[in-house]
Computed example of a mutant assay.
Amino acid sequence: MRLFGLPGARTAPPEPVRPGDVLAEAEALHVRLGTREVLAGVDVAARAGEVLALVGPNGAGKSTLLGALAADLPAASGTVRVHGRPAHAWSARELALRRAVLPQSATLSFPFAVEEVVRMGRAPWAGTALEDEDDPAVAAAMAATGTADFAARPFSALSGGERARVALARVLAQRARLLLLDEPTAALDLRHQELVLRVCRERARAGDAVVVVLHDLGLAAAYAHRVVILRAGRAVADGPPAGVFTDRLLSDVYQQPVEVFPHPRTGDVLVSPVRDS
């Protein structure tokens, strides 16, 4: 099945990116949802070649920040740039060539086969010089997410975890250089949580900027190059996990005693709640 984009002249693909290029950034960002200010003066930048994890308690503004960086939510004030240009200056199709978004849940009203769902990620490339890469892009995305074995099954017949992996495959098939993933591990078992975060690291090694919302601080510590800790709509820390994950800060942010210590074999950061014996 081939999905066609908008009619008209062929669209030029995005310019190449270099390691360290800022592909999404917010400056003094304020976002309101109704009468509530959800983000209050947040500064953040996502760079090519890194995994950036957004962490914090429920209601901290993680998903809202991701939506603003995707240009899906408007800023009340402040600036959001995608690939160096104000987000509102891109058309919807231009954005789709530059950033791919994985929402918290994936629903479809029609019984599309899994491969057809993944192929939807290729729609922005129709009419560009790279539209002939559809088949290899879809195959590579399904191989990376372990979804090729049920390519012909209806999406509606999948388990929650299988749907989550198919949705990630669609995002990967889009081959945008900026990936914005909202809780991609929430519905997954241990094995597939690790698979998804390894894919994030692989995309960063390939030069993409990956922004991922995570609740599991252990996964963030293990796989993120950098973390932004949000609390009540503000960024209270930004840096490598080993630098910003401290007992005092995490205990304060989560209102739960937390212990941070090095792994006995690798030295990597481990995070554990303090429990009564």
Rank of each mutant, 00 (worst) to 15 (best):
V213G: 06
A144M: 09
L179F: 08
V199E: 04
A187S: 15
G127L: 05
V166L: 09
A206I: 02
V114P: 04
T147R: 08
E131F: 03
S156C: 13
F150G: 05
G207D: 02
A129R: 15
L158K: 05
A186K: 07
M142I: 08
A144S: 13
A123Q: 13
L168R: 06
L178N: 05
D135A: 15
A137Q: 06
R203W: 05
T147Q: 07
A141I: 02
L190I: 14
A167K: 07
H215S: 09
A164P: 02
R205H: 10
V210S: 01
L180C: 09
D216I: 11
S156N: 14
E183A: 06
D134F: 08
L190N: 02
L158V: 04
A139T: 10
R177G: 11
T145F: 09
E131V: 05
R165F: 01
T145L: 07
A173M: 11
Y223E: 04
F150H: 07
A173S: 12
A157M: 10
R153S: 10
L214R: 02
H215F: 12
A187W: 03
S105D: 15
E202G: 06
V118N: 08
R175S: 08
A152H: 13
C200F: 09
R153F: 01
F150L: 06
S105L: 15
L130K: 11
R198I: 03
A221S: 14
A173D: 08
A206R: 14
L179R: 07
L108F: 13
F155P: 00
E183F: 03
M120P: 01
T145G: 06
M120Y: 14
R153C: 00
L130G: 01
V171P: 00
L214P: 03
L168V: 15
L180T: 07
V212Y: 04
T145W: 03
A152D: 12
P136L: 09
F110Q: 05
C200H: 04
A139G: 03
D134Q: 12
A106Y: 09
P184W: 00
A222E: 15
P111R: 08
G127K: 00
V213L: 08
P111D: 11
R122C: 09
A143Q: 14
R163T: 04
R165M: 12
L168N: 01
A152E: 13
G121A: 10
S159E: 10
D134H: 06
